Measured scan of single mutants.
Amino acid sequence: GQVHVGDTTYHFPNPEEARKFAEKAAKENNLQVTQHGNTFKVE
């Protein structure tokens, strides 16, 4: 799974890890998570 936060892309071998990371980043920054397959975008 990939997580895009601003201009930075994080790669995770496990989509579940990617999702947890995205949700945590979104919560900390008052942002939203959008999911496209195994790619998550925090914005």
Rank of each mutant, 00 (worst) to 15 (best):
T39N: 11
Q35E: 06
V33K: 01
A26M: 03
H11W: 14
V5K: 03
T39F: 10
P13H: 08
P13M: 09
H11M: 10
G37F: 04
Q2G: 03
A22W: 01
A25R: 09
L31V: 07
V5P: 00
K24H: 11
V33Y: 08
K20Y: 07
E17K: 05
G1H: 12
T8W: 12
K27V: 08
K41R: 13
G6K: 06
E28D: 12
A25G: 02
G37R: 03
N14T: 14
R19Y: 06
G6W: 10
E28V: 10
V33N: 01
F40W: 10
E16H: 08
T8F: 14
N29H: 14
N14R: 03
E16A: 09
P13R: 09
K27H: 10
A25L: 15
A22L: 02
V5M: 13
N29Y: 14
N38T: 07
N38H: 06
H11K: 07
F12Y: 02
V42R: 00
Q35F: 04
G6I: 05
E17N: 05
P13Q: 10
F40C: 04
E43R: 05
N30V: 03
T34Q: 06
A22N: 00
E43N: 07
D7T: 12
T39S: 13
E43H: 12
H4P: 01
G37T: 02
A18D: 01
A22T: 00
H4T: 14
P15Q: 13
K24P: 00
F21C: 06
A22I: 02
E28K: 12
V42H: 03
D7V: 07
V3A: 04
N14F: 05
N29D: 06
V33M: 07
Q35H: 05
Q35V: 10
Q32D: 06
H11F: 15
E16L: 08
N38R: 04
F21Y: 06
F12G: 02
N30T: 04
E16I: 08
T39W: 08
P15K: 13
P15S: 11
L31K: 06
N14I: 04
Q35P: 03
G37A: 04
N30P: 01
G6Y: 09
K41V: 15
G37E: 06
G37P: 00
F21W: 08
T34S: 10
N30M: 07
F40V: 09
D7R: 13
R19L: 08
R19H: 05
T9H: 08
V42E: 03
A22S: 02
Q2A: 11
N14G: 08
F40P: 04
